[in-house]
């Protein structure tokens, strides 16, 4: 199984020369099985780069199929949707899966993102490809051909996001982004979800000193990412959802310090890099 990070940045994209090595696009992760199946997690600006690769293959001819799991609908996780060119090709079949929301349906929220005020697309119905929006219960297994996908709700400030465990080829990657665990640590449900995974991709937006000022904002410190990785017995940890204030040099320093403090081998997720699990 291969994991490719197309976008690793949290909150907002960071163009510019100080963000070239880790990358400035907002969140998007592609998981590929040896069978050739793929699943995409989140639709941040990183998907505009993935789109180029997909369009050069079957998606360019309208024969592509792609399941997309949305962790949640904060803008940094969906802002690539209107620019994901496979959606403009008739015949492609793209299925977005997300959790049930309170108050509004997932489809309504995405519809609002594309409403005429905000977007010249004027709504999901104008995307030429077939787009299915599927609402599922977090805590259950979600359907994606070629994978086993288990999900669980994770706390994110005043709301919740979907954490997922994706298994193929006898390996498992767990994606837990935009989470802030309780002060006593990761919940038993999330521990169960992530237990003994081969790779844990975890929110690590804040350095420990930044976190003291931003507790309650719904994001993790690097230390709490390490603690979660340790608690679940992860084999490797990828620090993810980097702060827009973390330049390449700053991230280098943070990762070096983190690696020394962690019993679980870790690295900072880097845009465009393939990780073999």
């Amino acid at each position: 199984m291969k994991v490719r990070f197309w976008g690793v940045r949290g909150s907002c994209a960071t163009p510019g020369g100080r963000y070239l090595r880790y990358g400035g696009n907002t969140t998007a992760i592609e998981v590929r099985a040896a069978s050739g199946h793929r699943i995409l997690i989140d639709l941040g600006t990183g998907v505009t780069e993935l789109a180029k690769e997909l369009m050069a293959a079957e998606f360019g001819q309208g024969r592509g199929e792609l399941p997309v799991l949305l962790t949640h609908t904060h803008v940094d996780h969906i802002q690539g949707l209107p620019f994901f060119t496979p959606l403009f090709i008739r015949g492609n079949s793209i299925r977005i899966m997300g959790r049930e929301l309170e108050g509004a349906s997932l489809k309504e929220v995405l519809q609002d993102q594309l409403n005429g005020h905000y977007s010249p697309l004027y709504g999901l119905e104008n995307l030429a490809a077939g787009l299915e929006v599927q609402t599922l219960r977090a805590g259950s297994s979600w359907p994606a051909e070629g994978f086993e996908v288990k999900t669980q709700l994770a706390p994110h400030g005043s709301t919740s996001v979907v954490a997922c465990r994706i298994t193929a080829d006898g390996k498992s990657v767990v994606i837990m982004t935009d989470v802030e665990h309780a002060p006593e640590g990761i919940s038993s449900e999330l521990t169960e979800l992530a237990r003994d995974c081969d790779l844990l991709v975890h929110d690590a937006m804040f350095s420990d000193s930044e976190y003291t000022l931003r507790a309650g904002w719904g994001h993790s410190s690097i230390s709490s990412a390490i603690a979660a990785a340790h608690a679940v017995g992860a084999k490797r940890l990828a620090l993810f959802h980097h702060s827009p204030d973390s330049s390449d040099d700053r991230l280098d320093m943070l990762v070096q310090d983190a690696a020394e403090a962690s019993s679980v081998p870790l690295f900072a997720a880097q845009e465009g890099h393939d990780v073999t699990v």
Partner: peptide, 18 residues
């Protein structure tokens, strides 16, 4: 100076991606 969406990366360092 960019239209549509922000474009990070090496290809936009000089003119800008915001």
């Amino acid at each position: 100076v960019r239209g549509s969406y922000p474009v990070p990366g090496a290809a936009t360092v000089r003119y800008g991606g915001h």
